[in-house]
């Protein structure tokens, strides 16, 4: 309990101090609410538009989770395939990097043409931006297996599948979770960009609020999106701990 308090107290304190400082500064400088709303105005907007924001948040969360799940499944499979041989890696890895550098804002309108309007385009956008960190980190993990252990497996005559399931994948887990933490935040960004063109969720709330010049609602929607990102990050962290706690000495989460 005391340890929990010690972990929660510092970020809460910086949050309160930061919010207070922003509130005072914006008020003191007399910045127009059209340009930058005070934190209290954002909180009021979040409350009075809760019936818009919460369903939108739920919709975005759904798309992010599906996109992220697809990233994990396909990303890990891709990493296993790439790790199978140096030749395969050389032949295909450069094209995996495509996913990292694809300007999602530019291709988003195409997603609508390929997948139609609605959640499929949104999930696709979340997937595209979040799959690369999964591939890259899973691959790095698979490649970093202790050679002595590989020798040991060979010595005992373990087959390819046994080596993968019992040695390489468990070994790659900490690295995979590092990738997942990056992917979780990116998936939120991808989903919102997807929503700009595909419709639904917080993305459309942001667009509508911009057009109606409700800057306070724009910030409230962005806060919901960052909240989602934070919760996902924390969830990946917790799952990582649970999965790794029993037998992984390498994972030392600060």
């Amino acid at each position: 309990m005391r340890r929990l308090a010690a972990r929660v107290a510092p970020p809460t304190a910086t949050f309160l101090a930061g919010t207070l400082l922003a509130e005072l500064l914006i008020r003191a400088l007399g910045v127009s609410p059209l340009l930058l709303p005070t934190p209290s105005a954002v909180a009021r907007a979040a409350w009075s538009y809760r019936e818009t924001l919460l369903p939108a948040l739920a919709s975005t969360t759904g798309a992010v989770l599906v996109g992220l799940a697809a990233s994990v499944a396909l990303g890990v499979l891709a990493a296993i395939a790439l790790a199978a041989s140096r030749w395969v890696e050389r032949a295909f890895y450069p094209y995996a990097i495509f996913f990292q550098i694809v300007p999602i804002v530019a291709v988003a309108p195409l997603l609508v043409i390929w997948f139609g309007y609605g959640w499929r385009a949104v999930v696709a956008a979340a997937f595209i931006v979040s799959v690369f960190p999964v591939i890259a980190n899973a691959l790095a993990g698979l490649r970093s297996v202790d050679p002595a252990l590989l020798d040991l497996f060979r010595l005992y005559g373990a087959g390819r599948l046994a080596r993968l399931v019992k040695l390489e994948l468990p070994w790659a887990l900490p690295s995979l979770f590092t990738g997942l933490r990056v992917a979780a935040g990116l998936a939120v960004i991808g989903a919102i960009v997807g929503e700009f063109v595909g419709g639904g969720g917080l993305g459309v709330v942001v667009l509508g609020a911009m057009r109606q010049q409700r800057t306070d609602l724009v910030f409230a929607a962005i806060l919901h999106a960052s909240g989602l990102g934070l919760v996902l990050f924390a969830a990946v962290d917790v799952i990582g701990r649970i999965v790794l706690r029993r037998w992984h000495w390498r994972e030392e989460i600060p």
């Binding site: 127009s32 340009l35 930058l36 804002v105 530019a106 988003a108 960009v193 700009f196 942001v206 911009m210």
Partner: peptide, 21 residues
């Protein structure tokens, strides 16, 4: 207009600084 909300927000933040100067 594609991506303009992002651009819009960026400009918005620049304007805040400009409004002060």
């Amino acid at each position: 207009m594609r991506g303009s909300p992002i651009v819009g927000l960026a400009v918005l933040l620049c304007l805040v600084t400009a409004a002060c100067s």
